[in-house]
Amino acid sequence: MSAIKSYFKQEVKTSMLSLEHPKRTDFYLSCWQTTRSAVPVLIWRLILFLATLGIVLASAIIYILNGKFAYWFIYLTHWGLTSILLTTGFGVGVSARIYFYGPISAEFSLPWYVKTYWVLFNIATPVAFLITIFYWTLLFEAGIEEELNHGLDVAVHGLNSLIMLLLLLSSSQPSRLLHIYQPINFALVYMVFGVIYHFAGGTDQKGNAYIYPVVDWSQPGTTILVVVITGLLLICLHLLTMALSVARDSLSKRCVNNSVIVHVDEGMALRQQVYA
């Protein structure tokens, strides 16, 4: 209990609002590896990026073929997929940058591309979980499909969370309590978009005067309740992301033999350490 209390006491410090972290290697090395080579994480992130790109392209192409591509942009699922694509893409970029040019210096602030990756990760992970839960608890039972292909619709609302879970469990970067403002801001932007879209006369792909029937702004009372509950769920999922990060780090410390880690010159490009 004292360890938990100490952990949360550390997490609520105002300094934790920032995008700074003393251990730079947490952003490009896995907590499960025993070398300082950037290659394993680079390859893994590239696989996840290509998988996400394939899902996004498949979804977008089907919308284009049906002449409804403009509607692709109104759904939270596709906003979430876009955030996953950007997260995995920036993850590949961070790993590639380290591989070709060497580790990040601890003398300066975290580079903008690392901070961008961190923010995108903080947003995409709980939002992916939220979208999966939202779909399988509310939309699926109601027979509502965002995708124009049933198989893809089912896959999209499961693979999104799987990709982010795999990225989370294979990474080392921390998840901070006070970074909750990042996914919350993302959700608020989507909510504002939904309100503007509704009152501007926007419809879903079938011509209904809403994006989701459970979020119909012509019935503000019910919709506001759904929005509040969804916001609370998003906070819980951010806490779940934190818990998974802590469990990942704790388990990896028990399983990985840190004594065999190879320490290299911090100024040396890690592409030279592939076989370290």
Rank of each mutant, 00 (worst) to 15 (best):
T25P: 03
L53R: 03
I55T: 04
A96T: 14
P22L: 10
H21D: 15
P22E: 15
V228S: 03
M242P: 07
H150M: 15
P174M: 03
L232K: 01
R271M: 15
L65W: 14
L168R: 03
S105A: 12
S171F: 01
T14N: 08
L86D: 09
L81M: 12
I98P: 02
P103L: 04
C255D: 13
T35M: 02
L168G: 06
T77I: 05
V262C: 02
T87I: 01
N160L: 08
S2N: 10
R176S: 11
L178P: 02
N258F: 12
L29K: 06
L225N: 12
I64G: 01
S170G: 06
S2F: 09
I123P: 02
L50N: 09
W72M: 08
V214A: 12
N258D: 14
S250Q: 13
L81Q: 08
V156R: 06
L165D: 05
F27W: 07
L139H: 12
Y135K: 09
M16L: 11
S161C: 01
Y181M: 09
W72P: 02
I43D: 08
A247K: 02
E141S: 06
T52H: 00
I229S: 04
R36F: 14
F27C: 08
Y113Q: 03
G151F: 14
S161I: 03
G201H: 04
V127H: 02
H157R: 06
K23V: 15
V192A: 13
I184V: 13
N160Q: 09
N208Q: 10
S37Y: 12
G231H: 08
W118Y: 06
L48C: 02
A96N: 10
Y197H: 03
L110H: 07
F108S: 08
I144Q: 00
P103V: 10
V227L: 11
V195Q: 05
P40S: 13
T52G: 02
N149W: 12
V189N: 07
W118N: 07
I123R: 02
Q33P: 05
A60H: 09
Y28V: 13
L234C: 10
T34P: 00
G207Q: 07
P40V: 15
W217Y: 11
V195Y: 13
S161V: 08
F69T: 15
S175A: 12
P220L: 10
I131W: 05
I131R: 03
L162S: 09
H21Y: 12
H150N: 15
S95N: 12
T52K: 00
L48P: 00
P213N: 10
I133M: 11
K115W: 10
R45P: 05
P111E: 04
T203G: 05
R271S: 15
R176K: 15
E141L: 05
G91Y: 00
A58Y: 13
A155G: 03
I74Q: 00
I196S: 00
L19A: 07
F186L: 06
I62P: 00
C255K: 13
H150G: 14
T88R: 00
